[in-house]
């Protein structure tokens, strides 16, 4: 028997590899997006701090903006530095 493929559709799944299921700031799942976004993925990325804690980028930026003096990780209170690795 000979089969001729006329068309095919690829399906892939993805998930963020984070050390937790939910964002500690908005408490929404990392595989979803922050409450201000509609679609998860590159438009609502995750970021890591050097302390290894992870948040939606939009959430941590809002938190840092609300802290005029000490920019600390909301989980461990270490000074917040983005981990660029």
């Amino acid at each position: 028997m000979k089969v001729t493929i006329k068309q095919w559709t690829g399906v892939a799944s993805w998930k963020w590899v984070a050390n937790d299921d939910n964002c500690g700031i908005c408490r929404m799942p990392f595989d979803g997006c922050c409450p201000d976004c509609k679609l998860p993925g590159d438009d609502c990325p995750l970021v890591w701090g050097q302390c290894s804690h992870c948040f939606h980028m939009h959430c941590i930026v809002k938190w840092l903006q609300s802290q005029p003096v000490n920019q600390q990780c909301p989980m461990c209170r270490q000074e917040w530095k983005f981990n660029n690795k």
Binding site: C26, R27, M28, C34, P35, D36
Partner: peptide
Amino acid sequence: ANIAAQRIKRE
């Protein structure tokens, strides 16, 4: 605000 209400619901 959206984020506050959503978070309180989950909490």
